[in-house]
């Protein structure tokens, strides 16, 4: 279990992280979101003891996290780096050995991992001869092959196509099932929403959201409706409490002033009987992100 308590860090005038606290239990995934410069990488570096916080502390299973705990960590930095002249096998063995896993053990596990991530290439291929996507997979394998108990992935999905992104999602889920505590940062709310149990959103170093993903969404109330009915855009806008109507597939997406308005919309839409869709939901993480960040996350 990882506990981060009241971390503060500033670089000169700039306050990079302000009073940050969160907990990640074993078998739990925390999604860290925020724009560039929100303090995500600084947070990771403080957890890993690469940066000393100005104040606050990091605990692993109740004791302060130190360099002695580094063997249980699997860390994928945002800027990827591999030894281009090494072979896949040499590279993975070296990184795993640095985390205390014997070369023989790594050798045994490697084929399995290469299959799981569908790496196109042989163990004896030089890293520089692999495609960028495959290099990224090798980097992931090097990060995870020693079965880390604490996994920190900085933007693991960036640059992955949907097929490989879902391979990675499977990989993360697998670690979760094995009981690892996982933190990852992402720009893509889709990934965060899908796999994270908890969510932490940073804006210029300040925590703006912190909690269980579903609860955060729920806390905003069911102010969205996806609707496919005979009602037109004009009809919908005429309903009191509907603040916005957008085209959505064959129907509309409505923004409500409050969840109660949903009942009125439902009554209006179903007054002639059957309709194809009525789905009242809390706002998506993407919308919350935009609301909280004040601008688009793209």
């Amino acid at each position: 279990m990882l506990q981060v308590k009241n971390l503060n860090k500033s670089f000169g005038q700039m306050q990079a992280v302000v009073d940050e606290s969160f907990t990640v239990n074993d078998g739990e995934i925390l999604g860290l979101i925020g724009q560039n410069g929100a303090g995500k990488t600084t947070t990771f570096r403080m957890i890993l003891d690469l940066l000393k916080p100005d104040s606050g502390s990091v605990f692993w299973n109740g004791h302060p996290f130190t360099r002695k705990d580094q063997d249980i960590v699997g860390f994928l930095p945002e800027e990827r780096g591999l030894y281009l002249k090494m072979t896949v096998e040499e590279q993975v063995i070296y990184f795993a050995e640095l985390r205390g896993q014997k070369p023989a053990v790594t050798k045994q596990k490697l084929n399995d991992w290469m299959q799981r991530f569908a790496v196109k290439g042989k163990r004896t291929d030089k890293i520089k001869d692999l495609s960028k996507g495959n290099q990224q997979k090798v980097q992931l394998i090097a990060t995870l092959i020693h079965d880390p108990k604490l996994v920190i992935l900085d933007e693991p999905f960036s640059g992955l196509d949907p097929v490989n992104a879902s391979l990675l999602e499977d990989g993360i889920e697998r670690l979760k099932a094995q009981g690892s505590a996982i933190i990852f940062s992402s720009h893509d709310m889709g990934n965060v929403e899908k796999i994270s149990d908890k969510l932490l959103m940073l804006r210029q170093g300040e925590t703006v959201l912190n909690g269980v993903t579903n609860e955060i969404r729920e806390s905003f109330g069911d102010t969205r409706i996806f609707l496919q009915s005979p009602l037109t855009e004009t009809d919908l806008l005429a309903i009191d409490g509907v603040t916005d109507v957008k085209k959505y597939q064959a129907g509309f997406e409505l923004q409500l002033a409050n969840p109660e308005v949903g009942k009125t919309v439902f009554a209006q839409a179903t007054k002639n009987g059957y309709i194809r869709e009525f789905s009242q939901q809390p706002p998506s993480l993407d919308e919350i992100f935009r609301m909280k960040a004040g601008v688009s996350n793209e």
Binding site: Q70, V73, F75, P77, E79, R80, G81, L82, Y83, L98
Partner: peptide, 14 residues
């Protein structure tokens, strides 16, 4: 190692 960003992995391990 620094230029190829391997350093970050290295210093987080050793």
């Amino acid at each position: 190692e620094k230029g190829s960003r391997i350093m970050e992995i290295l210093v987080s391990s050793v």
